[in-house]
Design a binder for these strands. Structure first.
Lengths: 344, 344
DNA sequence: CTGAAAGCGCTTACAG
DNA sequence: CTGAAAGCGCTTACAG
């Protein structure tokens, strides 16, 4: 068969009109059960598949969603899996688009994708400026049929990030537990400032230290400051090397496991023991981290679940439904050797 | 504007027929430069975007490609980035689909995707049975307009895997270099058998040992066998724990960095030094691996480049061109501390 | 309950 | 060089 069968072919074979075939497949018109069954049988037997381009032209629905990610984040594949799962269950296909550059450039690229109107909705995993985002509070009718754009992480008016993956409350838990265990000298190895998650963890660290300083029981806390500013473990290693000999005993809160690994390496190179002279926490539950010596205390983030939730928010926006309620946190602390024997 | 402008709207404003607008945009018909320019100006000014569903219905081309991946492989995001880059440059959009299950189930899922005929081509990164793959040697005209399916990794008649990412020649280099450095006792920690790459590395290990045994200079080589069979570092750690006390000095070829980390941990737990009692090699150039103590000798795989090449093969097949020539290897050995001071 | 017909927005021979 | 017209394969009021 040179061309795939169309609804006309099915109609001819089933001895009905083409419209009847359409009704049988969409289940929309009024049609007798017997006719529907016969049509569906014929459709099945000839391997009929509706031409989605034609359907889309009539319905003005494309059934396509786009997920925008950055070029490098390893964990985003898991987010994509979760998002794709939910979208598929709702009858949508998802396409992945990669954007890069400054936040303005990324925003422009998302805007261009939305203007192409090929998708019913766009979920962006990379932060973009809020002006491209759809006002989900507005009635769907007021949206001009424009593509709905929803972000996993976005910025509030203070450029603080919002979104599941930017939740940094575990940092406060780390600091408090380490204070409880007797630690008083702290250091934060931060990620790059452009990353919402990195900023959130840094801010949470500074807030936790400030809280500790205010509490009479821990007023003798001292922060050696915030170092780093990239996801490079080399920067973390060098930061450790640059510390004064008097630094230990030291508690380091690293913005992720990679930086924590750099910290451990730097400490080892100076002959500092871990978790003796230096304790350290990471983030992401990197698979290798559990097999470091000492194994890494970290935050296990359920990226797949975060992807599912983000997609649920997008779907709700596309349909004009109320946004789903926020679920339980997707982050869970995993205590291991790098913070010493104490557990909260 | 309630609906986006169509070519009719542009035609009306520009004072030409709708067909002329189409010619101006596709650059296909015979049309005066002046008219074309005027039409393009109007199109630009009203923000005209061709309706791709309508275009697709006429041209029978969708401009869409699909990339099929598994649900878990972290590195595949980089492959996707490379593949998407090439596809976008060729004017295609790429969609990501995830399949799971046995090889038969995955094959069926790819088949269903192809049968839907929504894509001009499908690139599968997960191995599938060869019968879904398009015979790229056949003339495009003989393909019935069916969706072209190309695999990154596939199986030859001996179920050996083919494809950039299954190239395991670095294993032979590891074994030879370690033999040269005086090592004679070897162990392979294998990945899961379902993975083409894992099988390729295991086979390359066995072949290298056999070669060494044949060579008079290294005939005293002894392999303690092949252990493991999953990507779990825990399995690797336990494998080390299960070794006899007499195992060292031992050279371990692990199927990836994660397993190598498990090996190092297991060795440390037994009080074996690395790279003294035990040397180990990994694979993938995991970011944390470089900061382990000892840092991990590994294989840096350019996943993005592998993705680019795979997509180039798909595009060639879609267009009916000859497949592109195989480029230089995408894998590069990175020697670090875990194999000791010797370098080949 | 079923069918004839219009129309979604394009591309492309064909006529002028 | 330009336009009128057909048609890609659907969905959906509307008439019977």
């Amino acid at each position: 068969m040179p061309n795939p069968p169309t609804s006309h072919d099915v109609a001819r074979i089933a001895g009905v009109s083409q419209a009847t075939v359409s009704y049988a497949l969409t289940g929309r018109g009024t049609i007798s059960a017997a006719t529907r069954e016969r049509v569906l049988e014929v459709a099945e037997s000839v391997g009929y598949r509706p031409n989605l381009a034609a359907r889309s032209m009539r319905t003005r629905r494309t059934g396509r969603l786009a997920v925008v990610s950055g070029p490098t984040l390893d964990h985003q594949l898991r987010v994509l899996v979760g998002a794709g799962e939910i979208a598929a269950a709702a009858g949508y296909t998802t396409e992945t688009h990669t954007v890069d550059g400054t936040i303005e450039e990324r925003t422009d690229q998302v805007r261009a994708l939305a203007d192409a109107r090929q998708h019913e909705g766009i979920l962006t995993l990379v932060p973009v400026l809020p002006h491209v985002l759809t006002d989900v509070a507005a009635a769907p009718g007021e949206r001009d049929g424009a593509t709905v754009v929803v972000a996993e992480a976005t910025f509030d008016e203070h450029m603080r990030s919002l979104g599941e993956l930017a939740d940094a409350t575990a940092v406060g838990v780390f600091v408090e537990a380490l204070l409880q265990a007797g630690h008083r000298r702290f250091l934060h190895v931060a990620g790059p400032d452009q990353f919402a998650s990195a900023r959130a963890r840094r801010d949470a660290y500074l807030a936790a230290i400030e809280r500790a300083a205010t509490d009479p029981a821990t007023a003798d806390v001292v922060s050696l400051g915030v170092v780093g500013g990239s996801w490079s473990p080399e920067a973390a290693r060098l930061a450790l090397r640059a510390l004064p000999d008097s630094a230990p005993p030291l508690a380091v809160v690293a913005a992720n496991d990679l930086l924590a690994a750099g910290v451990l390496r730097g400490a080892a190179e100076r002959g500092w023991t871990a978790p003796g002279d230096v304790v350290v926490t990471g983030w992401d539950d990197d698979a290798v981290g559990a097999y470091l010596t000492p194994s890494l205390t970290t935050v296990d983030v359920d990226f797949t679940e975060a992807g599912r939730r983000a997609m649920q928010r997008l779907l709700a926006a596309v349909r004009g439904d109320d946004p789903p309620e926020r679920g339980a946190a997707v982050a869970r602390i995993v205590w291991r050797e790098s913070t010493g024997p104490q557990r909260p």
